[in-house]
């Protein structure tokens, strides 16, 4: 039940996207997200959709895993759509009582829906094809220039990778403790809000204690292996670019260029026809 959270879950398979350098995937994801905010025309979004579909195909991850991430934002999406539909001033299409749905509202709601879902699917592709460790390695490497201005890049990356590593463990632990308390007649489902909140105490206390115990053990294990921060630490698997990574950067540039010139492209096609 608690395992159904995909955001940040790796899907094991072998594809060209999986094999790409994590830095490429990070840059691509950032570029894609930025493009979604810059684009605002049908033609641009068609290009974004095509790009996304090709990436999904190439990643060999079943589409249903991407959609899983969408579940988390359904609520947010619903609110955004309703507010945009009802509160955007403009030419009314449909009026009920004092509220009217406007043409502009529909357009805005449609674009926002597309933006948000592309955003979630786009970042899901990255997290589904990149292990958390690769991801943090990639981030550390990309943020290295920030070290010059005294940003503790290595420490941040280390904290992130530990946090990511602990998510599934804590999920499992939660599941176990919940079951153990249910075996003692605990009820996590019924009752009003206050009763429900109270029923979480037998779950949260052992969970927090165990998180601290694990943190302690981990700190001890790291110290036992002489970990003392990022200085002079070398990697077992250093990140290095291959040919395909440069090709991927080229593809990202092409995508951005195509998107930015989409309007002109469309006109050109129209003229040619």
């Amino acid at each position: 039940m608690l395992r159904d959270i995909t955001l940040g879950q790796y899907y094991q398979t072998d594809s060209i996207i999986h094999r790409l350098d994590p830095r490429v995937k990070l840059v691509a994801t950032i570029a894609f997200i930025l493009s979604l905010f810059i684009f605002d025309g049908v033609a641009e979004y068609v290009i974004a959709a095509l790009f996304l579909i090709i990436m999904i195909k190439l990643s060999k991850v079943p589409f249903k895993f991407m959609v899983k991430g969408m579940k988390a934002i359904v609520f947010l999406l619903a609110i955004t759509i309703v507010f945009n539909l009802l509160l955007t001033p403009g030419e009314p299409v449909f009026t009920v009582w004092k509220l009217s749905i406007t043409k502009e509202g529909i357009r805005l709601a449609a674009f926002l829906t597309i933006r948000l879902s592309f955003l979630v699917i786009g970042s899901s592709i990255m997290t589904l094809t990149t292990t958390p460790n690769q991801l943090t390695d990639g981030m550390e490497s990309l943020m290295r220039p920030l070290k010059k201005i005294k940003v503790p890049v290595h420490e941040i990356a280390m904290m992130m990778s530990i946090a990511l590593r602990f998510i599934p463990i804590l999920m499992e632990e939660t599941d176990k403790i919940m079951k153990a308390q249910m075996a003692r007649g605990a009820d996590f489902e019924s009752g009003n809000f206050i009763k429900k909140a109270k029923s979480l105490i037998p779950l949260l206390v052992p969970l927090i204690i165990s998180a601290f115990r694990r943190a302690n053990d981990l700190a001890m294990a790291m110290e036992a292996r002489c970990y003392r921060g990022g200085e002079h630490r070398t990697r077992m698997k250093p990140l290095c670019y291959k040919k395909r990574d440069f090709a991927a950067y080229a593809v990202i540039l092409l995508y951005l260029a195509a998107g930015l010139m989409a309007d002109r492209l469309v006109k050109m096609v129209v003229v040619l026809l």
Partner: peptide
Amino acid sequence: LRSKVGLVFQYPEYQLF
């Protein structure tokens, strides 16, 4: 059923709160 069939989990001490 859970009151009639008591189950003590592996490492049950982690459920104390």
